[in-house]
Design a protein around this nucleic acid. Structure first.
Lengths: 149, 149
DNA sequence: GTCAATTTCATCCTTTAGTATGAGTGACTC
DNA sequence: GAGTCACTCATACTAAAGGATGAAATTGAC
């Protein structure tokens, strides 16, 4: 929540600075239009990427899971609770488990979920413990048998 | 690859249009600087998001067309031959692959098949190469998709 | 606002997986 | 008999996975 406020503040500040800068330079006539547009492009391109990343970290949409799972009957929250209770796996752990099943390495999972490898290792460890598996391949097998993935 | 080319082309085209438009409007003096900047911002913000998303979706690249191949029932020997030929996997490699899919470690596989771990490692390496996988979990996934296990 | 659970990240360490290379043996083909 | 292939095993190495522990920030429920 704090991030959003700070981020929005910075963004607005940046916008205002950009406007004022453009205005001043524009009236003075010592800078070209293209330069301003180019700078704006780059800045907002980066902001776009960053925004997207943050959004996913805060509210993971799980497009892979949504394509196959017919989870329309119950609402998302209850389903999550149900899964968590029946297997002790949290939402994030299920995501990681999903990626494990797709054959990704810890590093790759970290990349796709925008997390550090350490975090993934922690999740994997917890998954192995909760599913009573010794290896990730075994965890995937068990998860498949239980219909988790 | 095609996407990248087309995307880049569109992006450059968009940039040029933007530049020209800005130039014309600027010299005519009938549009404000802020408007141009705002439009640029929005466009590149969206491009940033889209770019980021694309980059994510491209990552898991693997053939998944063979998920529902109709397996014809021939006698066991021919079936094995056929599978071996169509995937380059030998009989022994298929056995190891099977054990991999059941979540066993190399040592455990060696134990159940009465072989040394070295041998299993060799087989696993060959399996990974032949299935074009980087890890055993990926190999298992591919094998499952191809109906090998 | 408090508290438990979740999520995130780090470091140190051990174990397992995977790569590269070489080599011996048996079966099968030409 | 030479050549090929599958299978076996070994050594030496690098990369990845997994375990243990601590810690901080968030979140959700109460």
């Amino acid at each position: 929540m704090k991030h959003i406020i700070i981020g929005s503040g910075l963004l607005i500040t940046l916008l205002i600075i950009l406007f004022k800068l453009a205005e001043v330079q524009f009236t003075q006539g010592n800078v070209r239009m293209e330069v301003i547009i180019a700078i704006t492009s780059v800045i907002f391109f980066i902001i776009g990427i960053y925004f997207n990343r943050k959004k996913e970290n805060v509210k993971p949409s799980r497009p892979e899971a949504a394509t196959e799972e017919p989870q329309v009957f119950i609402d998302q929250k209850n389903l999550q609770k149900q899964q968590a209770n029946s297997n002790g796996l949290s939402k994030r752990e299920l995501e990681v488990l999903q990626k494990m099943g797709e054959g990704f390495s810890n590093q790759e999972i970290a990349g796709t979920l925008f997390l550090s490898e350490s975090t993934i290792k922690t999740h994997v460890s917890n998954i192995l413990f909760k599913l009573d598996a010794k290896r990730r391949t075994e965890a995937v097998k068990i998860a498949r048998e239980k219909g988790l993935i």
